Simulated scan of single mutants.
Amino acid sequence: MLPWIQLDRATIPGDGGELRLKQRGSEFSIMLGATELMNSRLSGSEETLATLGCAHIAGRKGARMLIGGLGMGFTLRAALAALPDDVSVVVAELVPAVVDWARGPMADLHAGTLDDPRVTIHVGDVGALIRSKAAAFDAILLDVDNGPDGLTRASNDNLYSHNGLRAAQTALRPNGVLAVWSSAPDSHFTRRLRDVGFVVEEVSARASTKQRGARHVIWMATKR
Rank of each mutant, 00 (worst) to 15 (best):
V126H: 02
G25C: 14
D86I: 12
L52N: 01
A102G: 15
M38T: 10
G68C: 09
D100R: 11
S26M: 13
D86W: 02
V99Y: 12
R77V: 02
R41N: 14
G62S: 06
L49P: 02
A34G: 08
A102I: 10
L114S: 01
R118Q: 04
T35Q: 08
S26D: 15
L83C: 09
T51H: 10
A58I: 00
K22A: 15
G112R: 06
K133S: 14
I130E: 09
W101I: 14
A107K: 13
I57N: 05
I12A: 10
P117C: 13
V119F: 02
A97M: 14
D100E: 15
T75C: 05
G17Q: 12
V87D: 05
S26C: 10
E46A: 12
D138K: 02
V98M: 07
P105T: 11
A97D: 11
F137R: 09
S40Q: 07
D116I: 09
G53L: 03
A97F: 09
G59D: 08
R24T: 10
V99T: 14
D85C: 02
T35A: 07
I57S: 03
H110R: 09
R24L: 12
E47C: 06
F137Q: 05
D85A: 15
F28Y: 15
L49V: 00
N39Y: 12
R64D: 04
A63T: 00
L21I: 13
A102R: 05
E18K: 13
E18Y: 10
R24A: 15
R103S: 11
G73Y: 04
L114Q: 03
D15Q: 13
R118K: 04
T113H: 05
D108E: 15
L37Q: 14
D125Y: 05
D86G: 02
V90Y: 06
T11E: 15
E93N: 05
D86P: 01
P105W: 04
G25S: 08
D125F: 06
H122Q: 09
K133R: 15
S26N: 14
L19S: 08
G69V: 04
G62L: 04
A102D: 05
G124Q: 01
I30K: 01
A81S: 03
A82M: 04
A136Y: 01
T51Q: 13
I67A: 00
E46L: 03
A58E: 15
R20G: 06
F74G: 05
M72R: 07
V90H: 07
G44T: 09
L32D: 00
C54G: 04
G73K: 05
L70P: 00
S45G: 08
H110L: 15
M106F: 05
G25W: 12
G25T: 09
G112P: 06
G62R: 13
L52G: 00
S132L: 13
N39K: 04
L80N: 00
R64M: 05
P105F: 06
A81V: 00
L32I: 01
R60N: 12
L32W: 02
L76K: 00
G16Q: 04
N39G: 11
R20C: 07
D138L: 08
L19A: 05
G69R: 01
A135R: 13
R131E: 14
S26W: 14
T11N: 08
G44Y: 07
R20V: 14
I130D: 10
A128W: 08
W101E: 03
M38I: 12
G73I: 07
G25M: 10
E27A: 10
G124Y: 10
P117D: 07
F74K: 11
